[in-house]
Design a protein around this nucleic acid. Structure first.
Length: 673
DNA sequence: CTGACCCTTCCCAAG
DNA sequence: GAAGGGTCAG
């Protein structure tokens, strides 16, 4: 059932966009590509987002209804940015267009048809911590003999299961290739895996991977839905295709089907997620996989000065597995080379960065236009101290995410449980907030609750307190338990349906949580404020299920629209970020720090000794340096004091050592203190 | 059985 | 420096 679409531009675009004038020749070619499959190789800083944005506008201009377009991106932020830009270009309601991350699109599909997979509406989404809790619960009941052999902890199990899902292979294969030392216990691992899957269905919960795995299954097992969605998504566009894994690729293939039109955009030189299953082969072999596909290369870089671009090109040169392209700069030369800065130690590194930031500010560069980029979160430690001491404002993309903080998760647990009464993880979390209830009582209470709920369908909808009153709790816990019951009752209306999110949060905080926070946390005020922001975020939603989904789907990378980020958004601040999270962003000035072997590239990767591993690190280095528009500082400390090994002498990163000396300028930094 | 306290361990990247 | 694990008093 091939579908043919011809794109006409006879009467000129309704939007009045002059595509040829606003794009360069190769961008225009990709934007105006005929229907069918297309691979767009867009180098760093070549206007990839612009190209995708204009492509969507072009489709709309040619009469494709927005609901027939699906735009898959890597982060929510990227999706939002592109849709905003499309709205600015054409007068079409882009809310009708499906755009978002793979996970959010999966979520949307599954929310429409949960019953097809044996799920109920209002299923909960577990984050990493919830997943670990559920696995621990499974482990507790699985009678695993942990004495005789080393059995993987729940985090490790989660990692293994996730990898198997994402690269669509058998769990045994993961054990064999990546965890051979667990081969002795592979039988119980499989058993836990099975129990875990059953438990998820039983508690009406999904983990992150399920959002995709189950979406794929939904489409594979339901021909009618497959037809519906294939017909719906006539034009599918995928951003950052180099970072897709097998599961995501299968999802796309299913949605596109035989006659669909698929455009994938990416840059193989920026593939940096193989450790979570991304397969750069998806982009490298796309043309082979789809013989009719046309390939477009966009090789003009608008971002960086030629001095920086030359260095970047030289840096990636050493990689063998890549699509050859020659990225050239459109900007004029600047006359100064990227700086190579050797400093004595991490303290001096931080001092250098801080001082240079202040000098640049004097020269008129905004703090917002400066970033410090590093390989691992802990590399930012000294910089944070130094910037704080000097009063330089900064924002950091840390490992700690707003929605993963204990108090936010506690409140969310009440909401999740109100929406999904089978949610064991949330139930356990909230009853353990009660004084006098530990893990043993919590487990007992859950078993009572699920029994009462199982034998009595009424418990699924009626007032919570009616059922909770019947349950036995430790004496010490009784009054708080009752209070919890009344609070939960406030979260549902007389029909038993959950009320709006903002109201829920209010009830929870007023009813029980404020008291708990005061007793538990030193920084009660701060946390109370967080919850107020959560509530104001919640007021954008009427449907608590929708709100909770968004909470789960928002990640650390794109918490832009998250409450915590909003407070700092318009403030001028230097950005501190990992190289991974810097992907897709740009700044006038970039400080790349800790460029020593063992730090960047990472020690573990070097120890593993795989050439692919080092190539990925090199791509990560490429991503780092290509973030810079005007100035790039590559810095490494000679000596650092390790916790265990004392003073360690460092060697400059091989990625720097491999570069021709003429591409950078060594700076001599003298400490005057 | 709970919860306070102390000890050790950990550090690569994230949806 | 935080978080998990072990120990022990109440």
């Amino acid at each position: 059932m091939a579908r043919d679409y011809t794109l006409h531009s006879t009467k000129g675009p309704a939007s009045g966009i002059n595509y040829k004038a606003e794009l360069n020749a190769s961008q225009y070619e990709a934007v105006s590509a005929p229907p069918g499959h297309a691979l767009v190789i867009a180098g760093a800083g070549s206007g990839k987002t612009r190209t995708l944005t204009y492509r969507v506008a072009y489709l709309l201009d040619n009469g494709i209804p927005p609901e027939n377009i699906l735009l898959l991106t890597f982060t929510n932020k990227a999706a939002r940015e592109m849709l905003d830009r499309v709205s600015a270009l054409v007068q079409v309601d882009t809310r009708r267009l499906w755009g978002g991350t793979f996970h959010s699109v999966g979520n949307r599909l599954l929310r429409r048809h949960p019953e097809r997979l044996g799920y109920r509406p209002g299923f909960s989404i577990m984050d990493r911590e919830d997943q670990k809790d559920l696995l621990d619960s499974v482990l507790g009941g699985a009678a695993i003999d942990k004495g005789s052999y080393r059995f993987p902890k729940s985090e490790v199990l989660a990692e293994m299961f996730s990898l198997a899902e994402n690269i669509c292979c058998d769990l045994q294969e993961i054990i064999d290739t990546r965890y051979p030392y667990f081969d002795l216990v592979s039988e119980p691992i499989h058993r836990v895996h099975q129990l875990y899957r059953e438990k998820k269905l039983e508690t009406n919960t999904m983990d992150f991977d399920d959002l995709l795995t189950l979406s794929v299954r939904l489409l594979q097992e339901n021909e009618d839905l497959l037809q519906t969605y294939q017909r719906m998504f006539q034009f599918v566009l995928v951003d950052e295709f180099q970072d897709t894994n097998r599961l995501q690729c299968d999802f796309v293939d299913l949605l596109v089907g035989e006659g669909g039109n698929l455009m994938v955009v990416g840059d193989d030189a920026q593939s940096i997620y193989s450790w979570r299953g991304a397969d750069v082969g998806n982009i490298l072999n796309f043309a082979e996989h789809h013989p009719t596909a046309k390939t477009y290369k966009i090789e003009t870089n608008y971002r960086s000065v030629p001095e920086i671009l030359s260095l970047a090109n030289a840096a990636i040169e050493a990689n063998t597995a890549q699509i050859r392209k020659s990225l050239h700069a459109s900007r004029p030369g600047k006359g100064t080379l990227p700086a190579l800065v050797q400093v004595d130690n991490p303290g001096a590194q931080a001092a250098f960065v801080a001082q240079r930031i202040l000098e640049l500010q004097d020269e008129g560069v905004d703090f917002n236009e400066m970033a410090v980029i590093y390989r691992a979160h802990f590399h930012s430690l000294e910089i944070q101290l130094e910037l704080t001491q000097r009063g330089i404002p900064f924002q950091i993309t840390s490992g700690l995410r707003f929605f993963e903080q204990a108090h936010v998760k506690d409140v969310a647990a009440f909401m999740k449980f109100a929406v999904n009464r089978k949610d064991e993880v949330s139930f356990m979390r909230l009853v353990r907030l009660i004084p006098g209830v530990g893990s043993a009582s919590a487990a007992k209470l859950w078993s009572d609750w699920s029994q009462c709920e199982g034998s009595n369908e009424g418990a699924m909808t009626g007032r919570f307190s009616a059922y909770m009153k019947e349950m036995k709790v430790p004496k010490k816990a009784q009054s708080t338990w009752d209070q919890f019951g009344y609070t939960l009752d406030e979260l549902i209306d007389p029909q038993g349906l959950p009320v709006a999110p903002a109201g829920m949060i209010h009830s929870i905080v007023e009813g029980v949580y404020a008291d708990y926070m005061k007793a538990k946390f030193k920084n009660y005020e701060q946390r109370a404020q967080d919850l107020e922001q959560l509530s104001s975020f919640g007021s954008r939603y009427t449907d608590p299920i929708e709100f909770l989904s968004q909470l789960s789907l928002l990640s650390g990378v794109d918490t832009d629209n998250a409450p915590a980020a909003e407070a700092t958004q318009d403030r001028e601040a230097v950005t501190l970020t990992t190289a991974h999270q810097a992907k897709g962003l740009e700044w006038q000035v970039v400080f790349a720090i800790w460029l020593a072997d063992g730090m960047f590239p990472n020690r573990r990767v070097l120890d593993e000794g795989s050439a692919e591993g080092v190539e990925e690190e090199r791509r990560l280095f490429y991503v780092t340096v290509t973030r810079a528009k005007d100035e790039l500082y590559m810095i490494y400390p000679l000596i650092y004091h390790a916790a265990r090994d004392g003073n360690v002498l460092q060697v400059p990163s091989r990625f720097i050592a491999d570069l021709p000396a003429g591409l950078m300028e060594p700076w001599n930094v003298r400490s005057v203190f």
